[in-house]
Amino acid sequence: MSLFIDDNLEQHSDGSVTCRHCSHLVGDAAAPMNAARVTETAPRTAGPSVREDAALFADRPIVFRRTFCPECLTLLQAEIVPGDEVSSRHRSLIVGA
């Protein structure tokens, strides 16, 4: 039996995780997005919601990090975070949960 992890991801009984929009494999239960496509761009590429350049306020690099389904390019995760630290956003559902 499969389980919807969120709007975009589905976990199957064998632990594989696929895109709900195109059924492409994007990861497994331990790392549901390990096969996803990740890009990093300047924060202001997130749109007009970012009002000023981060460099006005902070010395560390800030990035707009996006994670996409490698096939249909649906956006799976978006965060604006320091670029010099790895993403802390993870999840792992027990297989068969």
């Binding site: 709007d7 919601s49 970012v50 000023e52 981060a54 995760q77 978006a78 604006i80």
Partner: peptide
């Protein structure tokens, strides 16, 4: 919340805007 927005998004949703 000026260097980076503090209200994150979910499931591909974007964070809210920055403080200004």
């Amino acid at each position: 919340g000026k260097a980076l927005p503090l209200a994150g998004g979910l499931a591909g949703g974007l964070p809210a805007g920055t403080q200004h």
